[in-house]
Design a protein around this nucleic acid. Structure first.
Lengths: 108, 108
DNA sequence: TCGCTATGTAGCTATCTGGCTAAATAGCGA
DNA sequence: TCGCTATTTAGCCAGATAGCTACATAGCGA
């Protein structure tokens, strides 16, 4: 994980709305509108938060009819932040590597 | 860990200089000047980064003669960020609770 | 006390951030 | 095609951020 790679992830995590979006997506994928309805801010603001999360590689989007569905990118957060935690407090945080999937070797 | 408690931690982690300071302190405590000498920015800028880290509870300071020595607050980062990771990607990040010390019950 | 080193504080500035409204784009169904 | 819904894009603005220089403060030793 390059340093300037994880930088975008830490920037993304700096905002409480974006952290909450990630937690909400933990339960399953959600459309932009469903996400927006959970916050007191307007749609365009949520849209930008989603853009930032996507740019950080933390979420994926996919179109379903005229809606756009967002979902967690499973490994991204753990690899990026977990790697940092492992260097600062390795005794307290254990990274458990996800079982390799058929495509995991090809990725990256 | 209250949400607005961890907010200051995530804000603190948003800056690459501050993340590097935390990693440097992993090797052991350092004076403000020693920390500053590791970065291309001026002393006052480093001083403010240290203030932010201290406000987030991530580092402690202590005076030694006319120097100020900074050190990691051991549990803070793991508890705060690890707790968040545990809710978003619990399969991949395992929080290992630090053994209680004689004073850990009294603290908090 | 004086002078030196180490560090923090005050105050300035450019840039970034995150909110908003208005308008554009994408897809669907009549 | 038209109208409707869902979402993003463009552009504006107030407040936060992070750098800088100049100055103040703290502690030590002559």
């Amino acid at each position: 994980m390059a340093d300037d790679e994880s930088a975008s992830v830490f920037k993304a995590l700096a905002d409480p709305t974006r952290r909450q979006i990630l937690q909400d997506l933990r339960e399953g994928e959600l459309s932009a509108g469903e996400i927006a309805s959970r916050f007191p801010i307007k749609g365009p603001s949520v849209s930008r938060h989603l853009t930032i999360l996507k740019a950080a590689g933390l979420v994926d989007e996919r179109r379903d009819a005229n809606r756009i569905i967002y979902s967690l990118v499973e490994d991204r957060l753990a690899l990026c932040v977990g790697e940092f935690l492992s260097t600062v407090c390795p005794e307290q945080v254990v990274l458990r590597r996800r079982r390799a999937t058929r495509t995991s070797k090809a990725s990256s």
